[in-house]
Write a protein that binds this DNA or RNA. Structure first.
Length: 656
RNA sequence: GCGCCUGUAGCUCAGUUAGGAUAGAGCGGCGGUUUCCUAAACCGUAGGCCGCAGGUUCAAGUCCUGCCAGGCGCACCA
């Protein structure tokens, strides 16, 4: 709604400004005045135009005000200060329109075409399948999943991929660990379950890393394992397949606890076995995007220039094919990226990997044609978002440069690195975990998580602690069956965790701290949930006492009385206006790849509701009309907030 | 050395993309509010050379330049 109105405002301003020199009108900025008493929207446009029109800002603002009063949404247009133009909306009309839109399932969003004219692929999670997921992986997955929800809300077709690097060094290390260090076999771990499989691998990976460090010659075993894994046959390859698949299953279960799901698991082994790289390699050679180096430090390699220098000069260069003929990670990534856009000239085979409890299947790539049900069409996207942490920007740039070198400029532009900063551990968190820090690390404000060192907070452990803590709080407040209490505790835990990971802007490093992450008060997910639970409580009581009352509210036509009432209650109007901004928060989230925008918007709205709730005794309100209006506001709030929370992956429990 | 990011209240962070009115929030501190649709909440209060110095502008936390401090990246690892 607001976006629509801003369009109208801009048109009106453009129409009111005399076209003296034929130059385009500068962008009209619409902002929020410092206080609602001044107005609902503010335009500093007169300042910008003053110089061009050679007139005083105040006079220009007066002219603009005249034109803007013609817009039906606008009640008043007033000039304030040195030349601000403050707009006041027709409050009753705005509220009625928003409420109608919410009840119609549009939440103030004007229906329009999806942001992009085809399918969008979002790739996220991508955890090396050799150990349990940790807190850093959760940030990736939660950001990725919320982004998918936001895009789908805007009508975008989205395919969610979780890339499985099942033939890499990390899996090889755990395989070497099972073959040389583990007291029991992988099968025995799965049968006896001394600890979950991914937990066992977590420790084994750290042990293996230390074992390599004790005697670097042992890394020859890693090389040997890698070759056997890539080849895909024999006992080592079989063990690698088992390790990777079981870890993937563990990751999927962890993510499913948080409401995070995928459409497809593309596996690196299939990229190798189906020779994706050969197709990409041929194209890269044909179009001279890569060059063979005869001498120098990269002698015998195929490299890609990253600084535009010619083949003879030695500038910045990235090795794509090693002198032993094997392809690097970036090379494989270029092939994979080409496939995502349908540019590779070949496709995977597919098999159902598992089903979700809503009946939707999760597919995995495979190397052989399958006789099972036909898979949907994967890949062939018009735009691709790779959710990968900031440290990999350089490699993502190379992948895009690769597409460009092949002449796929449009696809390169549509290859988006959705980058974010890492989650690190605060020194206090390390102390909580019993991790001893080196002296140099104690001075720092955070310590990097390291799967290799086994240094980190495991995702399942954290979720478990959150559920325990939430369960205690729930049982202290209500007497409920164990099942019901657990279900509520679970929703609260997910909410606390997801909100904690979303509220920071993406290029802020999160120094993970148990005290903050386990908090349910203040700017937290449970605070947001609680605001909706309160609103829902009102309607539960209302329905008990007066069945059918809600329908009456939803049929209500407030008319002039509603407008008068809103004019007298600035604080309530402010909340309505804020509630109408959901679509704007969502659009900004997409434009800036910033989920903290809707997260913070929701928090601000919840604050306004809690204040409203505190000030007004809604059900005991004596005046019948006022009571109806208050109920209408509460209904509007809870609908909008529930939707916003859904987009952040947060469910509202029945009670808290 | 080159590239990118960060520096705002005691702590953790918004606000910088798109300059605009009195720089906000949470936590922590201090002082208050429950015969409830109400405490996972609400109110009040203290707390700020917005890293430093120049510049542009009617207007700078926001843009430009330089400096200081911290982080990340620049593998024939992924």
């Amino acid at each position: 709604m607001l976006q629509q109105l801003c369009q109208e405002i801009k048109q009106a301003v453009a129409g009111a400004v005399p076209q003296t020199d034929g130059q385009p009108i500068p962008d009209i900025v619409v902002e929020t005045p410092p206080s609602v008493q001044l107005g609902d929207l503010a335009l500093p446009a007169a300042f910008t135009l003053a110089k061009r029109l050679k007139k005083a800002p105040k006079a220009i603002a007066e002219t603009l005000a005249e034109a803007l009063r013609e817009i039906p949404w606008i009640d008043k247009a007033e000039v304030a200060g040195a030349g601000y133009l403050n707009l006041k909306l027709r409050r009753g009309r705005w509220l009625t329109e928003l409420y109608r839109s919410i009840l119609g399932g549009e939440y103030g969003l004007f229906p329009g075409p999806p942001p992009f004219p085809g399918k969008v692929i979002v790739e996220h999670t991508n955890i090396n399948p050799n150990k349990a997921a940790h807190i850093g992986h959760l940030r990736n997955a939660v950001i990725g999943d919320s982004f998918v929800r936001v895009m789908r809300f805007l009508g975008q077709e989205v395919e969610v991929q979780n890339y499985i690097d099942n033939t890499g060094v990390q899996v090889a290390d755990v395989v070497v660990g099972f073959q040389n260090l583990s007291a029991i076999t992988a099968e025995e771990v799965l049968e006896r379950r001394p600890v979950p499989f991914d937990y066992y691998c977590w420790d084994l990976y750290a042990r293996t890393t230390r074992w390599f460090e004790e005697n670097p010659e042992r890394t020859a075993l890693r090389q040997q394992a890698l070759q056997e894994i890539e080849h895909g046959t024999g006992e080592t390859a079989r063990l690698a397949e088992l390790v990777a698949t079981e870890n993937v299953r563990a990751h999927l279960a962890t993510m499913n606890r948080l409401g995070i799901r995928y459409d497809l698991l593309p596996r690196e082994s299939d990229i190798l076995h189906l020779h994706f790289w050969n197709w990409a390699f041929r194209q890269l050679k044909e179009k001279e995007a890569i060059q063979f180096i005869g001498q120098g430090k990269n002698a015998g390699c195929w490299i890609m220039k990253t600084d535009g220098s010619g083949p003879e000069e030695s500038g910045d260069e990235k090795v794509i094919v090693r002198s032993n003929g094997t392809v690097t990670y970036v090379g494989k990534d270029i092939a994979y990226q080409l496939w995502k856009f349908g540019l590779l000239g070949m496709d995977f085979h597919y098999r159902p990997f598992q089903g979700y409890d809503d009946g939707k299947p999760l597919w995995a790539s495979c190397s052989e044609p399958q006789e099972t049900a036909a898979a949907p069409s994967f890949g062939k996207a018009c735009r691709v978002y790779n959710v990968i942490d900031q440290r990999q920007s350089y490699l993502q740039e190379i992948v895009a440069a690769g597409l460009r070198a092949l002449g796929f400029h449009l696809e390169a532009d549509n290859s988006v690195h959705f980058s974010y900063e890492m989650v690190a551990l605060s020194p206090r968190c390390c102390a909580d975990l019993g991790i001893e820090l080196k002296e140099e690390d104690q001075q720092r404000s955070y310590v990097e998580v390291s799967g290799r060192k086994g240094l980190g907070v495991k995702a399942d452990d954290l979720i478990h602690r959150l559920e325990q803590l939430a369960g205690e709080e729930v049982r202290a407040r209500h007497s409920l069956s164990g099942e019901e209490a657990a279900s509520i505790a679970h929703r609260i835990a997910v909410s606390a965790l997801r909100y904690f990971l979303l509220k920071y802007t993406r290029n802020s490093i999160i120094a993970f701290d148990f005290k903050e992450a386990l908090s349910f008060e203040g700017e937290t997910g449970p605070y947001l949930q609680y605001s909706v639970v309160r609103a829902n409580n009102i309607f539960r009581k209302l329905e008990e006492a007066e069945p059918g009352a809600l329908e009456e509210i939803r049929r209500l036509d407030g008319g002039a009385a509603l407008d008068d009432w809103l004019q007298k209650n600035d604080d309530i109007w402010e909340m309505v206006l804020m509630a109408s901004r959901l679509p704007d928060a969502i659009r900004q989230a997409l434009a800036n790849l910033e989920l903290s925008i809707p997260a913070r918007w929701a928090f601000t709205l919840a604050q306004k509701f809690n204040l409203f709730y505190h000030r007004h005794r809604i059900l005991s309100e004596k005046d019948r009309e006022t009571r109806l209006f208050l109920l209408l506001i509460a209904d509007l709030f809870r609908s909008q907030m529930t939707k916003a929370l859904e987009l952040l992956g947060i469910e509202v429990p029945d009670r808290m």
